[in-house]
Write a protein that binds this DNA or RNA. Structure first.
Lengths: 202, 202
DNA sequence: TTTTATACTGTATAAATATATAGTATTTTT
DNA sequence: AAAAATACTATATATTTATACAGTATAAAA
């Protein structure tokens, strides 16, 4: 999905606020009043930009004809939290799920299938701490440098991944930890997913 | 609650249908069209009856200004995201809100009033990066060592806070940044809230 | 470099809309 | 039996509202 500009976000937010508060979408003039614009065309053009980006739809020829597209279901997505130790086997089996949390699926760039609770300090230099919840998008695809959940023959680990031909490099972000080199000719390794975000509880 | 007549129920149903289908309430004319009335006043008087029975409210002087009363509370926890630059003034004013995200309120230890989008690298050594969203619980209370949103005379900043008598220490987590010392006898500073969590989007 | 997108002000107007007024008729409540 | 509510048609109009057109200016993309 295309990113919204700061102003477009404000307009979108203004629409949401209006619907929540009054029960119906705002007029151009109301958007202008709330955001301090002096011309109705300021609102109009932002609305058209949002429409172009498929965020809202505008019913032609009717007042307040704005509706927000792909509204998520009320409860939002419930996403399981899994301990890193357990991530190896049947990842999403219920016995591995520590809890479920509700998150806005639109929060992260890609769909989040589960949160991985981080153990150890191997990624600490890049701001990933013990007990942080790393949002994982399940996929076997990755680009070099992605943060990946990798299942090796005897472990599951969260590292930066680099692949060159049959050689896999799993690189930690901690100088006290050594990178892991895997030769796919001799050993097996599978990418379970990539990290697309992080949640930390203080 | 007073009972609705058959016609009033039809009109109410028509309103609900319109909101579900289009995202906004109907006009008088649209109600007439759907229910086969030939005069806009037919719809009007039914609406006034529904208003009198406290089923709906009608916003005077605005089109489609119908809203159905006692609706369920809106989506779970919708929490605004605010840029650090804007955090100073009218913090939660709509023009400062970049977007809203839905989060599980139980996710963090304390109630989250807003997310602060981090600017700069002053907390990078403790895993708080630029554009991270720090979950802020609005309060003026704090303990020494808390991560606090502090409004000084000319800035708003996110730092570790330590207070001893009239002296305030705002400590960054980056050796390239100097701690800020504030003598409350000479300068003013206010704690706007404390950080209770963090969300990062990759 | 040119084009496209963003981000507005300012003015104007056709169309959409709420809303008042004047009726008629039936049903329900007091 | 009278008053009030219901349930409409019909017409009119002030206001709201969407929307087009003409500009200016800046930033980003091609």
């Amino acid at each position: 999905m295309k990113d919204l500009t700061a102003q477009q976000s404000k307009v979108l937010n203004c629409i949401e606020e209006s619907i929540n508060k009054t029960g119906f979408p705002p007029t151009r003039a109301e958007i202008c009043q709330k955001l301090g614009f002096k011309s109705p065309n300021a609102a109009e053009s932002h609305l058209r930009a949002l429409e172009k980006k498929d965020i809202i739809s505008i019913a032609g020829g009717s007042s307040r004809g704005i509706s927000i597209k792909n509204k998520k279901s009320s409860s939002g997505g419930s996403v399981p939290v899994i301990g890193l130790v357990a991530a190896g086997s049947a990842t999403l089996a219920s016995e591995n799920i520590e809890r479920e949390i509700n998150v806005d699926p639109s929060l992260f760039s890609k769909n989040v299938d589960y949160f991985l609770k981080v153990k150890g300090l191997s990624m600490i230099e890049d701001g990933i701490y013990e007990d942080d919840l790393v949002a994982i998008h399940k996929t076997t695809d990755f680009k070099n440098g992605d943060l990946a959940v990798v299942r090796t023959e005897d472990d599951v680990t969260l590292k930066y991944i680099f692949k060159e031909n049959h050689k896999l490099l799993l690189k930690p972000a901690n100088k006290d930890f050594d990178p892991i080199h895997i030769d796919l000719k001799n050993e097996s390794a599978e990418v379970e997913g990539i990290g697309v975000g992080l949640i930390r509880k203080n």
